[in-house]
Design a protein around this nucleic acid. Structure first.
Length: 185
DNA sequence: TATGAGATCAACT
DNA sequence: GTTGATCTCATAC
């Protein structure tokens, strides 16, 4: 079942755990989401916390769109915008279990180890070839294709990775026992 | 296993 | 000028 914009037009804290196990394809390539983090606009660690800037503008728009930003000047990171327009909340997609397009992903990443293809926000964008040019695209139309999970998975919760502000908030979600996580919980 | 450097850019002080 | 929602490679323990 395809995930529509309505799916994302709810609290990030509701949407985030429901995305674990969902399938993300970009140009037909991708896999199951096994790890992500929620960023709420009242959260000091969120890009939108300080108000609207050219970079984070998409977060202030309607739910169901992709927010892509450059991280540390090198990597691209993919987020899904949630809640209502102006609420500026999003989930950061941190890891996938590669399912389709393995050959292409291996070539793009220059690696053969399946576990390292999409186990991190920057790695995942390199494997799916997502860049800043895709910032603001709708999630319910090509090249994106998002499908709901077939069954309720075992979900683990933890603290988020690589942040200093509000670092104690337990807003990181993962698929229990998955070998494709970027870090252990 | 763990720590450190380098790559490199936008926002912020 | 500093910091960061990161990754890779190198060197050390």
């Amino acid at each position: 079942m395809t995930l529509t914009r309505d799916f994302f037009a709810r609290s990030v804290h509701e949407v985030a755990p429901e995305l674990i196990g969902a399938t993300l394809l970009f140009d037909g390539i991708g896999g199951e989401i096994v790890e992500l983090e929620a960023y709420h606009h009242t959260d000091p660690a969120a890009h939108s916390y300080g108000g609207l800037t050219p970079r984070n503008a998409v977060m202030f728009g309607p739910a169901g769109f992709a927010y892509v930003y450059r991280s540390y000047g090198i990597h691209w990171c993919l987020n899904f915008v949630c809640e209502q327009e102006g609420s500026a909340s999003a989930v950061l997609i941190r890891a996938l279990r590669p399912r389709t397009g393995l050959k292409v992903m291996r070539r793009r990443r220059g690696l053969s180890d399946e576990r390292l293809l999409c186990s991190g926000p920057g790695r995942l964008c390199q494997a799916l070839k997502i860049t800043g040019s895709h910032n603001g695209l709708a999630l319910d139309a090509p090249p994106f294709e998002l499908s709901a999970r077939p069954a309720l998975p075992d979900i683990v919760v933890g603290v988020r990775v690589g942040i200093t502000k509000a670092a104690e908030k337990p807003w990181r979600y993962g698929l229990a026992g998955s070998p494709f996580l970027s870090k252990r919980f």
